[in-house]
Write a protein that binds this DNA or RNA. Structure first.
Length: 456
DNA sequence: CGCATCCTTAGGCGG
DNA sequence: CCGCCTCCAGGATGCG
């Protein structure tokens, strides 16, 4: 009633200020326990005003919480958050999980998940980490289908990130949504296999699973934090805090201790987890970095895509700090939402809302080919990103007609996979790292569809 | 040029 | 079942 007298902007601004205040207060509480030094930008005078440029913002001193070696038992949350209280009123509950630094997995579990997530923990701990996929040819058009039991609403909000755990023997997918929720779906258990946690306050921009240890799952968020969900330690700890939104995350293949993220207006940061500090920082783009991808064949080579309309390939060993120069630059006409290396590492596929998918191939990525594709997702859908299948021959990308488009890289044709069970537009995709033919696509309504290989 | 403002869009949910 | 709400993406336009 009363807020009818306020404009949307005013309402949102008041809300932002209140949230920021609560955030500050709760972090101060934890400071004494964790010695986290933390400086957040003050609320902007106008909520719509752009995020501060690097130069105008105070530098925050950051400290890894995980390196403090906090035992799970010593990081007990405030005692007043008895799980029995339904807290159905709109009174703010005391210190919600996503405001806490160190955090136990069980404390981040969201109400409508199963009573215990013990089953999920056991599944993740017992899953056997993958072997390589075979190199036999595969035709998604004739070998993939969507079964009705492989569709579920996993999260309440728009999904931004989706990733399979790298198990060869069971299918578990993890997704992150706009509200900061991280969901797991143990697909074989049907809808009973859905678990939801809320470790973040803002959209979950990326999920990265350790390639040889599926019990370590990193999540990045617009809230400026990277968290590590460690199933062995049963913690969901904050390992990196930025003053800026984190838009992308990627782990260095074969390196347990190195993590890259894209934050703020075009900054690429390298995080050394063992040392608990930033080991590199480069201003690579003029706008947000939407994806970071390592070349599987040469892990010194990374590709970034940016809203500044370019995608670039860099050699991480030799980026000039003052004037970074890319090895390769793809110029689009609009924001670029992804740039991914093919499984062999010899091609790069970029996707832009200029309605083009560009493929670089050949020695030194000198050959460029282009496929026209409708990427006008608008405001309510996550932007489309063409991902590679299990070899260099095709790409998956969403289609606004509620279909999965399969782009053949050899003849540049597009064919649509459709299913009566896919009732909304698939936006974000993940190809299973070791099960050929198993592919997840996630939607703006929080649904996940798992396409699988037709069994014969 | 830097800004403010407006427009587009799909899907869940409530009445 | 229709109409309302979402609301920080990103571009276009138009202003000073």
């Amino acid at each position: 009633m009363a807020d009818k007298t306020l404009t949307d902007y005013e309402r949102r601004r008041i809300d932002n200020i209140r949230r920021n205040g609560e955030m500050m207060a709760s972090l101060m509480l934890h400071q004494k326990a964790s010695s986290l030094l933390y400086s957040r930008r003050s609320p902007s005078p106008k909520p719509q005003s752009k995020k501060p440029k690097l130069s105008s913002s105070p530098v925050a001193i950051r400290r890894s919480l995980r390196t403090q070696g906090l035992p799970p038992s010593s990081s007990t949350p405030p005692s007043d958050d008895s799980p029995s209280s339904p807290s159905s009123s709109d009174q703010p509950p005391s210190t919600p999980p996503w405001k806490q630094g160190p955090l136990r997995i069980s404390d981040a579990l969201v109400g409508d998940s199963p009573l215990s997530d013990r089953d999920l923990m056991d599944v993740i701990k017992s899953g056997s980490v993958a072997s390589e996929v075979d190199d036999l040819g595969f035709d998604p058009m004739v070998e993939m289908c969507l079964k009705p039991e492989n569709v579920a609403r996993v999260l309440p909000e728009r999904i931004l990130s989706v990733r399979f755990l790298p198990f060869g023997d069971q299918v578990v997918v993890t997704v992150g949504d706009k509200a900061g929720n991280v969901g797991f779906w143990d697909v074989g258990k049907g809808r009973d296999g859905v678990y939801v946690y809320k470790p973040h306050a803002s959209p979950v921009s990326g999920i990265s699973v350790h390639p040889f240890a599926a019990t370590k799952i990193f999540t990045s968020s617009y809230d400026g934090f990277i968290r590590l969900m460690d199933v062995e330690e049963e913690t969901f700890n904050m390992i990196y805090a930025s003053d800026f939104e984190i838009f992308s995350i990627s782990q260095v293949p074969n390196d347990h201790n190195s993590l890259y993220c894209g934050e703020g207006t075009g900054i690429l940061k390298a995080w050394d987890e063992r040392a608990g500090k930033v080991s590199g920082s480069w201003e690579l783009h003029e706008d947000r970095i939407n994806t970071i991808d390592f070349n599987p064949q040469n892990t010194n080579s990374i590709a970034t895509s940016s809203t500044d309309r370019t995608a670039c390939i860099w050699d991480v060993r030799s980026i000039n700090k003052d004037s970074p120069e890319s090895l390769k630059k793809v110029q689009h006409l609009r924001a670029v939402h992804s740039a991914f290396f093919s499984p062999s590492g010899s091609c790069l596929a970029t996707t832009s809302i200029d309605d083009k998918v560009i493929i670089l191939s050949g020695s030194d990525f000198d050959d460029l080919s282009m496929i026209l594709h409708n990427n006008q997702t608008g405001r309510w859908l996550s932007s489309f990103r063409a991902i590679w299948g299990w070899d260099d021959s095709f790409l998956f990308i969403g289609n606004m007609r509620r279909a999965v488009d399969v782009i053949s890289t050899s003849n540049k044709t597009t064919i649509s996979l459709e299913s009566e069970h896919m009732t909304s537009i698939p936006c974000r995709f993940s190809a299973h790292p070791c099960l050929k033919g198993t592919m997840a696509c996630a939607t703006a309504g929080g649904k996940v569809n798992i396409w699988t290989k037709i069994s014969r």
